[in-house]
Design a binder for these strands. Structure first.
Lengths: 237, 237
DNA sequence: TAGTGGTCTAGACCACTTA
DNA sequence: AAGTGGTCTAGACCACTAC
């Protein structure tokens, strides 16, 4: 752990997960934590703020930091979790089939979404995700080629994110997601096991790099009964 | 504005919204902001962190803080925005009809959701939200009565949140939301103008107070074509 | 009154980017 | 080398909660 406050955050989070600090009880006071970890109070406070942001504790002025129930706030699909991470977390049988992997030039819609121009080269990756033997999710990914020179079917079947982060050392920094429900298209019906459903949940995802440049646009189409999103929101002060 | 850093955050956010700082350009450096606002650097940094959290800027080490164009998108349904705030923001014709307002004792499902027992008294509020003359949203709210002694039809038709915050001075602090798609029930079909749709988007909302006690459980049922959720997620360091 | 968290300061050193 | 943001410190004062 590079940073002190990050290390302290991890340590305290583990203690909560391990039950050393029980839900509805209080954490040691900031002053006590200062003594235990031998750092300044602002450093402890950074760690506590991380815990609060991630739903581990609630700070109450004049009282202390109350531990929240953990399981409840450990969201299955919040933030920027990849399909692989998610499937692992849920312990589900899952697989990925690459349906298309090609380099295209953008049409007007894509130019707009990716802020590219007609000459831009773009990776198009279409993947079908199986969970428990049903084809549940249709993922269409578009990357700007200038960021990702090469891409193979094997990589796409594994985890593109792992490849980008570990091999290419591309740093993903933030994303904007948008959800809505849409009528299923012919393509959806063909590539997914939609059963009696005639609509899909569409998640549009815009992924940005560390320097704030738009890097990827993804459209993810889910069978409605298998879609679920959890959000933890803190009211602005 | 009570806090310095909050005031500075508001001021900088306004400058971005007003276009004084343009997207993809950089904010003044932290040092320059220290001089302008005559505060310490940590205070400036708190303001900048708020801007980053809310999608206004992206901080880049060694370079500066880049203004994002995403910031302008003031997400329609992110965080804890009430129906009234939302309708106002979108400038839509909207109204609320109270369908039921009563005090009940919880069944097993509600006892579980609200962590209440059989003796608890609970406000049940059922409201139908019209947008552009269609009944689009069915809201079922459950409050623990011990927190909200009195509640009238008028209040429910206006904004319950405004009443709670301004009149009762109840401080809402954080919430967990959960979304999924469900088959429409008979009640949905009766109370909403579902047209040809036979499913609804369900949003379950658990609202907590400052002291981390669960205060309200809400189930919000939307006609699928009128539902949309936007999320801004920052990757953990 | 004592203890808690919330804000704020004036420095310091570091890692990274740009020139 | 100069400028940027990232981390960290050792204090200070305040507002709120509990007793």
């Amino acid at each position: 752990m590079k940073n002190k406050y990050n290390g302290i955050y991890q340590e305290l989070a583990n203690r909560i997960k391990d039950g050393m600090y029980q839900p509805l009880e209080k954490l040691p006071s900031e002053h006590e934590l200062v003594e235990e970890f031998e750092v300044s109070r602002e450093t402890i406070r950074k760690a506590l703020n991380l815990l609060a942001q991630n739903g581990y504790i609630q700070k109450v002025r004049g009282k202390g930091s109350v531990v929240l129930e953990v399981g409840k706030f450990n969201f299955p699909i919040s933030g920027l979790v990849s399909f692989k991470e998610l499937a692992n977390k849920l312990g589900k049988e899952s697989s990925t089939k690459v349906h298309e992997l090609s380099i295209i030039h953008p049409d007007r819609y894509l130019m707009n979404q990716l802020k590219a121009n007609e000459q831009s080269e773009i990776w198009k990756v279409v993947r079908v995700r199986k969970i428990d033997n049903d084809r549940i999710i249709l993922d269409k990914d578009y990357f700007l080629k200038k960021f990702v020179p090469s891409l193979t079917k094997d990589i796409c079947e594994d985890s593109i994110y792992e490849y980008l982060e570990k091999e290419l050392n591309i740093k993903i920094s933030f994303a904007k997601k948008e959800f809505f429900v849409e009528q299923a298209t012919e393509e959806d019906k063909e590539l997914l096991d939609l059963q009696m459903y005639d609509s899909v949940v569409v998640v549009k995802n815009y992924v940005y790099l560390n320097d704030a440049s738009l890097f990827q646009y993804t459209e993810s189409r889910h069978r409605p009964d298998k879609f679920r999103f959890v959000d933890f929101a803190r009211r602005q002060t």
